[in-house]
């Protein structure tokens, strides 16, 4: 007997992600899922952002996922009081349940923006909703210019793409126009911002971030008033 079903395989993750989204939005926390390959500079991006925004009124928290070690959390804790490390063991991506447990360890009233550094992986983190407001995909020059074409899901789903390590451009063969064309084909209109996070080259990223934070805060304030 054939039973027709038609149901999302990741339904349970998606339901939990929707709960996280409600929790974070109710607490007026703007949440950014940072996705990129191992070593592309996700932790460095968050570190540099925390340093650059030290005098902003915005208060940050970070959840960081790695297969093993708390090295990234240790790096981030130098600049931020609200850091939670998730060790996924064998898991190559964060899921909504892990994020729910990590969020429970953070004092949400004490933060305005939550970064979630996903496990270094360009593939499956994209398919697992965590309850974030936006997904930021990070590529870097050292990976080569074919990464957008090889990882179309991330490019399609990203609200913003960063190309990091732009300082290395003179040293490696890299066809910037090719990458830009692949991105434009897969996600027309999405911004691909060039950054160099370990070299204080954040001038394109910070205005984007500050705009999005301001928009989220005013949007939520007006919802709270209504």
């Amino acid at each position: 007997m054939k039973v027709p079903i038609v149901e999302n395989v990741l339904k349970i993750n998606d339901e939990m992600a929707a709960m996280n989204r409600r929790t974070l939005q109710d607490a007026c926390v703007f949440t950014i899922d940072v996705i990129g390959a191992p070593g592309c500079g996700k932790t460095a991006l968050i570190e540099a952002t925390l340093a650059a925004c030290r005098d902003d009124p915005t208060r940050f928290g970070v959840i960081v996922g790695d297969l093993a070690t708390d090295r990234d959390a240790t790096r981030l804790a130098r600049q931020c009081q609200h850091v939670v490390q998730i060790n996924t063991g064998k898991g190559c991506h964060l899921d909504a349940n892990q994020v729910r447990q990590a969020v429970a360890q953070i004092e949400l009233d004490a933060i305005d923006v939550l970064f979630i550094e996903n496990v270094g992986n360009l593939i499956c983190p994209v398919g697992f909703d965590l309850g974030q407001d936006v997904k930021v995909g990070v590529f870097c020059v050292a990976e080569g210019d074919d990464k957008a074409a090889k990882h179309p899901y991330l490019v399609q789903e990203a609200d913003l793409l960063l190309l990091n390590k732009i300082d290395l451009l003179p040293h490696v063969p890299f066809d910037l126009e090719k990458l830009q064309a692949d991105v434009e084909r897969l996600n027309p209109g999405v911004d691909l911002l060039q950054v160099s996070v370990s070299d204080s080259g954040l001038e394109k990223w910070l205005p984007w971030l500050r705009d999005r934070i301001a928009a989220a805060i005013s949007n939520r304030a007006s919802i709270a008033q209504a």
Binding site: V6, G127, Y153, Q156, R185
Partner: peptide
């Protein structure tokens, strides 16, 4: 060769064949 993918992110349990 100027084409864009549509959809492609499907992941669905469509049906189950069961012995009653």
């Amino acid at each position: 060769t100027n084409a864009r993918p549509i959809g492609g992110d499907e992941l669905q349990l469509m049906s189950m064949d069961v012995a009653e």
